[in-house]
């Protein structure tokens, strides 16, 4: 009997704390949920208008079709894959003929200062106007210059973009 009493005495405060904690967190989750979704959505929408400025977008299965003045210009899609130290997620805009309009890195976890340069315009601008088959590093027979000291990250993003672009090309054909 004594031990049961002891267990109750010990566990009730702990259980109470857990209940209060759960309740508080549920409230904070409800308070922030809308905003977090909005933030995530804005990331996608923001990058859509970067890869096809001035276009409106219709969501298809797993890509967006970009319309300018009611005419389909091309496709925008998210390409995702593993980079040097984590997942690289990038938005790609591609014209119907398979030329890249622009790419925009949404998130990456590459080495700060080296691999992170894949997200900077100096690197991403190289993709604009290139055909799918040229989206390879120069040393792999393509037209993309890799970043000094970050070949792996450069190759990773190039491969991610090309693979996904080929998939979308096949889907839309």
């Amino acid at each position: 009997m004594e031990s049961v009493k002891r267990i109750v005495r010990i566990s009730i405060p702990l259980i109470l704390i857990c209940i209060v904690s759960g309740a508080t967190l549920t409230v904070s989750n409800d308070m922030t949920k809308g905003r977090i979704e909005e933030v995530e959505e804005r990331k996608i929408n923001g990058s859509l208008s970067i890869v096809f400025p001035g276009a409106s977008f219709n969501k298809m299965d797993d890509y967006y079709s970009a319309m300018i003045n009611g005419e389909e210009m091309g496709y925008a899609f998210v390409a995702e894959g593993s980079g040097y130290s984590g997942t690289i997620k990038t938005m790609v805009g591609m014209y119907q003929n398979g030329t890249i309009s622009r790419i925009h890195v949404i998130s990456q976890l590459e080495t700060p200062g080296l691999g992170t340069q894949i997200a900077e315009p100096d690197f991403t601008n190289q993709f604009s106007g290139k055909r799918i088959e040229d989206i390879r590093l120069r040393r792999d027979g393509g037209l993309i210059d890799s970043i000094t000291g970050a070949t792996i990250s450069s190759r990773a993003i190039t491969e991610i973009v090309r693979t996904r672009a080929e998939e979308v090309m096949n889907e839309t054909r």
Binding site: P13, L14, I17, C18, S21, T24, L25, S28, N29, M31, T32, R35, I36, V39
Partner: peptide, 21 residues
């Protein structure tokens, strides 16, 4: 365990609000 739950709750609040704002 009690301390850990309290601390973890505050951490989650920080995590959620940082993500949102």
């Amino acid at each position: 365990p009690c301390f850990i739950v309290v601390i973890a709750s505050f951490v989650t609040i920080v995590d959620l609000f940082m993500h949102g704002y």
